[in-house]
């Protein structure tokens, strides 16, 4: 055909080969990840790297804690330095992992819904507050499902899924908002949203309701995908404004999601979607 080049320019040739090899290998890697076996291998690699990073973060936090704590733990760390330091830290991490999984297992056994356990394999460091988990659409996940840790602390909701991975938007993200309820003797409805910081913000609390510090905030169940009773946090402080139509409050999530490596996804509507 007349309009096709008969000879590839020399300048272009030196781009084509390396570009095609690297592009081909990367695309092959991505295509292989649509198969569960290879996807499991890459997810396990990333989960392992995430676990090692969390391990380092735990040690870093312990090393740079307050002066009082350092003095109190001084003798203990002297012992660690001189006697089997690495084995002590490994044992501590192993116990922490076992406790974490045991809590998840106990909570999972107590739930009437379908539950899926997943490992965290990556997290965002700027912009949106999100994490990546190693379960996806093939394992039955879909957007909107709640993600919990420990004894039922909700940390976020799934916003998108791939075949074997899912993105979870954390509650702290400013785009996150879930229907909530305040346990002050009766169930007072509100809406909890993120502020891109550690504290959350609860709005639309009726002015007539009494709101105080340390009151527990849970999910209300108004979202059909998020069951009621999942703990969001406790009231940290109340924004008093008698002229505003609603009361507002800051909510302390109590837990730090980045201390966990495994999460549980709840699916209250599994039977509906299975039909």
């Amino acid at each position: 055909m007349a309009f096709l080049p008969t000879k590839i320019p020399e300048n272009l040739k030196k781009f084509i080969r390396p570009a095609s090899v690297i592009f081909g290998v990367v695309m092959l890697f991505l295509m292989l990840n649509s198969f569960s076996l290879t996807s499991r291998m890459s997810n396990d690699t990333q989960a392992g790297l995430f676990a090692v990073g969390s391990h380092v973060q735990t040690i870093y936090k312990k090393m740079f804690s307050s002066k009082t704590e350092i003095i109190d733990e001084g003798n203990h760390y002297k012992y660690l330095v001189t006697n089997q330091t690495l084995n002590e830290v490994r044992l501590f991490e192993a116990e922490k992992k076992v406790n974490e999984l045991q809590n998840l297992l106990n909570y999972k056994a107590s739930q009437p819904y379908k539950t899926i356990t997943a490992d965290i394999i990556a997290r965002s460091v700027a912009g949106e507050s999100s994490i990546l988990i190693d379960q996806g659409a093939e394992e039955g996940l879909r957007a909107g499902l709640p993600v919990v840790v420990g004894d039922g602390y909700i940390i976020g909701t799934i916003i998108s899924t791939q075949p074997h991975r899912s993105t979870v938007r954390l509650l702290r993200d400013s785009n996150s908002s879930i229907p909530s309820a305040l346990l002050n003797g009766k169930k007072v409805m509100g809406l909890v949203s993120g502020l891109d910081s550690f504290l959350l913000f609860m709005d639309y609390i009726p002015q007539s309701e009494e709101v105080g510090s340390q009151m527990i905030v849970v999910t209300s169940g108004l979202d059909k995908n998020i069951p009621s009773g999942l703990v969001i946090g406790i009231i940290d402080s109340v924004v008093e404004n008698a002229t505003a139509p609603f009361k507002q409050a800051y909510v302390d999530p109590v837990i730090d999601v980045f201390d966990y490596r495994s999460v549980l996804i709840l699916d209250p509507q599994a039977e509906i979607y299975a039909e």
Partner: peptide, 12 residues
């Protein structure tokens, strides 16, 4: 790429 997003992004 995997090391950066899974390990480095976990660090403080």
């Amino acid at each position: 790429a995997m090391f950066e997003v899974s390990f480095l992004h976990t660090l403080p």
